[in-house]
């Protein structure tokens, strides 16, 4: 695994995260019903108080917007090179994962419904976090690109 490949992986997952969060933001902004599997879990979750950052219906900030902003920032941070870049990406990803984990807990145990868009986003941020933390801890030791070093010099 090279540093470049790790950055590309994080970038790829963050872009998928942007797509998911953007869709949920549009659904929220337009007041639409999200496309969902039978059972209406997505709608139930979207209409619950946990769809708002402060946990109150029609609160001050929908979590979908926070997710979108988070993925956009993570995407931008991937382009910062060196140790600072690795730190910023991880510093965005880890709290993002913790927030997403908290929301997933509430989705499963308080709302008692499953929104596959939210579960998808949780999976994406989990992968982004794993790769970001790995990159922070080991990125300096990884080769920058996939070029092999000459052997037996």
């Amino acid at each position: 695994m090279t540093e470049r490949r790790l950055r590309r992986l994080i970038l790829g997952f963050a872009i998928v995260g942007i797509a998911v969060a953007a869709y949920l933001s549009i659904v929220h902004f337009e007041g639409l019903k999200p496309l969902c599997t039978p059972g209406g879990g997505c709608e139930k979750v979207q209409e619950s108080r946990w769809a708002w950052v402060n946990g109150h219906k029609n609160g001050f900030l929908p979590v979908a917007y926070v997710g979108l902003a988070g993925y956009l920032l993570i995407t931008a941070s991937v382009f910062i090179k060196g140790e600072s870049g690795r730190f910023v990406t991880a510093a965005l990803a880890v709290p993002g994962w913790a927030f997403s984990a908290y929301l997933t807990y509430n989705e499963l145990f308080n709302v008692k419904a499953i929104c596959w868009w939210c579960m998808g986003s949780f999976t994406i941020i989990t992968l982004v976090t794993i790769f970001s933390v790995w990159r922070l801890l080991h990125g300096e030791d990884l080769p920058a690109t996939g070029e092999t070093q000459p052997q037996g010099a």
Binding site: F87, A91, P95, W97
Partner: peptide, 11 residues
């Protein structure tokens, strides 16, 4: 490791 600790603290 200190950086990671700081990040976990922020989280």
């Amino acid at each position: 490791l200190w950086q990671l600790g700081g990040i976990l603290g922020i989280a």
